[in-house]
């Protein structure tokens, strides 16, 4: 079957629709997912097609959206709950961390929580301090939860389908800035990308760039620019922060001996910190330079465009970091 060029939001919708057709237990719930057609239009048309039983509009109640999804999943349904944006998932952290992630373990395997919580993530255009988080690493802190963060429409479809079919709870974040970006998407209904598999997005021999989600875009742009100067970057998209698959990173590092980590989120106690720690732990004998990190600046995001952009990562910052480790 051919690939189709689709923006990420439509790839996600394709995944949702296919899984809802495939499995009666799969349903969607969240704020404005139905009649409003989805805040980010990911769920557009689903209510018309599947009706209000399977596309469930909820009140503005993040705690119970996450918590009721946990209960429904324990009872045998396969909810896909949407957090309008991940910023509001902070209200649901208890249900996600204390319940979704712990129930299987705490009750010794008696219950399963086959749940997906989808959340739009990242900063948009001057969304300001409360609405500009990309806090995936916070959630990846907790055993019992999987955290998936696709970077392309193709990955978005394959990863979301895997998340829905899995029996573990998954926090699935979707970069707002990527929703509209098109890419080839397999139309095959059985196109599923296994959970916890990372991916080489570009091959190269001089520096390994480790990233995920929106960082892939900046990293590939930086790699293009650096290639003109004869510097070949290998860009590795981890795709999942949990389970974390470092095999491709280590393979690559053995070849390049240098690494830059690129993340959309904040620098302290971060994705970058974790990857750097793992590399020095496992790859010490191969290291030719310290691991460099490109992150957002350690400030709340402001409104004014000039200083907002200053605080955020971009391709140029990646280029600069790569040059530092060479």
């Amino acid at each position: 079957m051919a690939d189709k060029m689709l923006p990420m939001r439509e790839a996600l919708r394709m995944a949702l629709r296919e899984e809802m057709l495939r499995d009666e237990r799969v349903f969607v719930m969240g704020e404005e997912v139905g009649a409003w057609q989805g805040t980010h239009r990911v769920t557009r048309g689903l209510m018309d097609e599947f009706g209000a039983r399977r596309v469930r509009d909820t009140p503005i109640s993040e705690m119970v959206i996450a918590g009721a999804a946990v209960g429904a999943a324990m009872a045998g349904l396969r909810p896909v709950a949407e957090m309008m944006t991940i910023n509001f998932a902070f209200l649901a952290v208890d249900a996600i961390v204390n319940h979704a992630a712990k129930i299987h373990y705490m009750f010794n395997g008696q219950f399963r929580v086959p749940l997906v919580i989808r959340a739009a993530s990242g900063w948009g255009d001057q969304a300001t301090a409360t609405h500009s988080h990309a806090p995936e690493p916070i959630f990846a802190h907790f055993p019992g939860l999987y955290v998936g963060c696709p970077a392309t429409p193709r990955d978005a479809k394959g990863m979301l389908k895997a998340a829905i079919r899995d029996d573990n709870p998954v926090l699935f974040t979707e970069s707002i800035a990527l929703y509209g970006k098109p890419g080839p998407v397999p139309e095959d209904e059985d196109f599923v990308l296994p959970i916890g598999r990372s991916d080489v997005k570009r091959e190269g021999r001089h520096v390994t760039i480790v990233t995920y989600a929106r960082g892939v875009e900046w990293s590939l742009a930086a790699a293009d620019q650096l290639a003109k100067e004869g510097i070949e970057c290998e860009v590795i998209d981890l795709r999942w922060l949990r389970p974390l698959d470092m095999t491709l990173v280590y393979e690559s590092f053995k070849k390049t001996n240098r690494c830059v980590v690129v993340e959309e989120s904040l620098p302290r106690f971060s994705f970058g910190s974790e990857i750097a720690a793992l590399i020095q732990d496992e790859m010490f004998d191969y290291m030719d330079a310290p691991v460099k990190r490109v992150s957002a600046m350690d400030v709340p995001l402001p409104y004014a465009r000039e200083i907002e952009l200053m605080a955020l990562p971009n391709a140029q910052k990646v280029v600069d970091a790569v040059k530092e480790v060479l």
Binding site: A66, G71, A95
Partner: peptide
């Protein structure tokens, strides 16, 4: 379905379990 130590944390779970019954 268990005892839960986060005060009121099990209430949404109850709603979800009830949803399965209705669904």
């Amino acid at each position: 379905w268990g005892g839960y130590a986060i005060v009121a944390g099990h209430l949404p779970l109850a709603a979800g379990i009830a949803l399965e019954s209705r669904y």
